[in-house]
């Protein structure tokens, strides 16, 4: 690791922390920007032991498209689930199904699990000990195979492209 990267272990974290600081204070005053930058620099420096792996985002465009798609899915699936809740509970077809994972890194698996949980109608409940399988509970799943394929195609493939090319 070159000395520069030792001083700035997580280049992504600094702007994010600065932004959070500015939002928290709801202000764009120069003093707050300076303080935010200082905190954004110091906190990763002091806590680098907690996250030893540097994160690289490949293909930022795919990442943006992925975020947009997730937001859209949250909206669409919410309407769907609202309908299910208001309908007859006996007509629900809840199911557990396993999703075999191609992702390897902790961050990627965590992001996938969170995405699955955020899009209503599916909820990740357990990761197998060897980290190869994610167990998902669906609120209304007529066909588990289709749901599994949907998760792999819609969410896992772009995450793999961005984080593990």
């Amino acid at each position: 690791m070159s000395p520069i990267w030792r001083l700035l272990p997580h280049p992504w974290l600094t702007p994010v922390l600065t932004l959070v600081w500015l939002l928290l204070n709801n202000s764009l005053a120069p003093g707050h920007i300076l303080l935010g930058l200082l905190l954004g620099w110091l906190i990763p420096l002091l806590t680098w032991r907690l996250w030893p792996d540097t994160v690289h985002f490949h293909r930022p465009l795919t990442l943006l498209r992925f975020v947009g798609r997730v937001l859209w899915d949250i909206l669409a699936a919410n309407l769907n689930v609202a309908q299910l809740i208001l309908g007859k509970p006996e007509r629900l077809r809840p199911a557990f199904f396993a999703v075999p994972l191609d992702l390897k890194s902790e961050l990627a698996i965590g992001l996938l699990a969170n995405t699955v949980s955020l899009t209503p109608g599916t909820l990740s409940v357990e990761l197998s000990r060897d980290r190869h399988t994610l167990f998902v509970h669906g609120l209304d799943v007529p066909d588990p195979d289709a749901a599994r394929a949907e998760i792999k195609r819609r969410y896992e493939a772009p995450l793999k492209e961005v984080l593990e090319p």
Partner: peptide, 25 residues
């Protein structure tokens, strides 16, 4: 609707879906 789901859905795992809805949207 999220809380309604919590109150009327039949088992714990289906009820678990309700709060994720209430928060996100």
């Amino acid at each position: 609707i999220g809380s309604l789901g919590l109150a009327r859905l039949p088992d714990f795992f289906t009820r678990l879906h309700a709060p994720t809805k209430a928060t996100t949207l």
